[in-house]
Write a protein that binds this DNA or RNA. Structure first.
Lengths: 211, 211, 211, 211
DNA sequence: AATGAATGAGTGTTCATTCAT
DNA sequence: GATGAATGAACACTCATTCAT
């Protein structure tokens, strides 16, 4: 009895999350209204307030699984693919860019908003942790590509630089109106070049440092 | 007689521009309402429509001088400073980052919004033109630093990569709540390193290409 | 439980319709504001948007039943009264004039505005259809009075002429400030005469044509 | 000196009147803004308030000359054309319809608004007088066409009926979007027929009355 | 658990009009 | 006589949110 209700409840919640995720991704957070989400989720707009304090809470609830998904992609590439380290780094980067461009209007929230909410006690809703984990994985990949020591000062610095470039690419391309696959095609050449430049730069700088 | 009125008018216009500039910078374009601007400017909200066709026109009126100012800084560095090319490029880059961080939420509009206005007849109000000029100056500076031929394919590509990194830095740091000078300090070390990496990478890649 | 709510909802909707109907009739469509309607209906202006997509939808919702009512009066006269055809035509005409004068400033919308809405999928909301049906009934009545063939060219022409006269009467009288029954009294003599003239004219013209 | 200023003043006033007349005719009274008139008249919008109390006063000032012009056309047809009476009546009627359709959105004001203004002391601004004179001329023309006695009861009645039909035609056609000359073409056939019907009817009724 | 009803605050924009000059 | 500056009231419409059920 109670279980059935709980199941239904869970289902409703999931459908709300699915709907908001879809709509936020498509149109951006502020361009989507609560009523629109409700319609898409097949429930009343008031129901949303049962599960989520307000619109922003909804946003946070969505962010987590999305980033989780990305993290798993990262891990899969790192651990399960038989490829040289550099190829893996390249793969991860493309994955990251792709992810950000898919979630165009979400990505600002995913990566750039500060989690200022003081009221979040549940540790699982902490975006920052996940973000850091993603950064960590990127760092790991770069470390292997450059043959650097773990936790070296340079590694952190280089990962930051690498990360900036990824962010910069995403930022620049995310305002185009072209369809995603076209953007990715155009972007591929540029990124390949950027990738080379950065790795060459990193290595060279390491050599000089050694000298 | 008439002059006094004209002066008052100018003052009103200026106060509107100042208010919008402040508010847009603080909260972003769409988060600021016309009425809010009016209150800040100390006039009726209808007065704004005397001076500016609509909200977007107001935005344009603000953006242009800002970018103009940045352009002049670029030009000053390029033409009037006695420094090696690389130092100039470095200088320009810091200036750019600084500018973007000062105008936090404006910079999205300044650099990333597509100017969809087709009806702009006055050429001076064309944001895109100015944006391109800034990119051009950056390219020029990079060209001199690398000793590349003007208008070479590589130059364009490298400038893009360089620009991405700048954008990425700005994007990453622009959501911090620290005061600007603190951010700039923290950022300086990182950027210095990124600068080195990129230039080393560019040069190395050029050499390889030559081989 | 649910029923009570539904009832309240129905009541609100009705009060909105009543208010708009009253105000549109009194002052004309564009002279009435949504907020004015809300005040009259005793609800918030936003409530109106729960029940009606926009102002125009409200207008349509009002117009349809009114015209429907008129159509039924027409049909009743035509089918259920035991009277000679001419008397029926006279009756119908008076009914039409009366209706138009009651709904003073609405009648412009009812009869003279072009329904530009292309998106109306519900056939029942189509004003034009109803208008045509009313014209059709008038034509039918005239046809029987003159003993004309259905669908003859003359019939259409004569109905138009007849309709013009009705419209002219309404237009002329609708701006008087006299109470309705006084207008109708004054108008009756005139219309009786007009009726005779027109029918005599029609018949005479038909005879000449036959010659 | 003073004369020159007065002349300029007169000129300004005239240009305002011309502008409003043009715009009101084209777009309808309420669709035209004071500023729009001012721009067309080549003066400041505040200047308009020097000459006219408010927008409505402007409207009244325009109406008079327009109707005056129509009146003169009527008189010209009646007195200066060498044509049989019926042809003159026809001519006058077409002129009337044409006039009303040209001034589409004005004609409601010209013919249908009650001059409720209590403050108009100047007799020349009295629209009603002019309207009556126009009606009088129409009556005169009809009288000659039917060979009726002046000031007979029937004449008044018939003129009313005739006038209704004209009004009805105008009302019906004035909401079409076709260009004027096309409307007039389409309308000509219908009106010719209506004209015949009415005159036949009038004559027949007179004969019967005599019997 | 879920919902329809309802709302106040807000949006950008336009208007006729007034005032000081 | 003429004007630019300025304004308050109004417009249709949307929003996130609350309440009673």
């Amino acid at each position: 009895m109670t279980k059935k209700i709980e199941l239904r409840s869970e289902e409703t919640k999931r459908s709300i999350l699915a709907a908001s995720s879809k709509l936020f991704t498509e149109k951006g957070f502020s361009a989507v209204s609560i009523r629109e989400i409700a319609k898409q989720a097949g429930c009343s707009h008031t129901t949303i307030y049962i599960y989520f304090k307000d619109k922003e809470a909804l946003l946070h609830a969505i962010s987590m699984p999305l980033l989780e998904e990305l993290k798993q992609k990262f891990q899969h590439i790192l651990n399960h693919l038989e490829q040289p380290s550099e190829a893996k780094l390249y793969e991860i980067s493309i994955e990251f860019i792709h992810f950000c461009l898919i979630h165009q209007s979400m990505y600002k929230i995913l990566f750039q908003t500060q989690t200022t909410r003081v009221d979040e006690k549940e540790p699982e809703s902490n975006l920052n942790k996940l973000r850091n984990e993603l950064f960590e994985l990127l760092m790991q990949s770069l470390q292997k590509s450059l043959g650097l020591k773990t936790e070296s000062e340079e590694l952190l610095e280089y990962t930051r630089i690498y990360y900036y470039t990824l962010q910069g690419i995403v930022t620049t391309y995310s305002f185009s109106n072209e369809p995603l696959n076209q953007i990715m095609k155009r972007l591929n050449t540029t990124f390949e070049s950027a990738f080379e430049v950065l790795l060459l730069g990193f290595k060279q700088k390491l050599n000089i440092g050694v000298d």
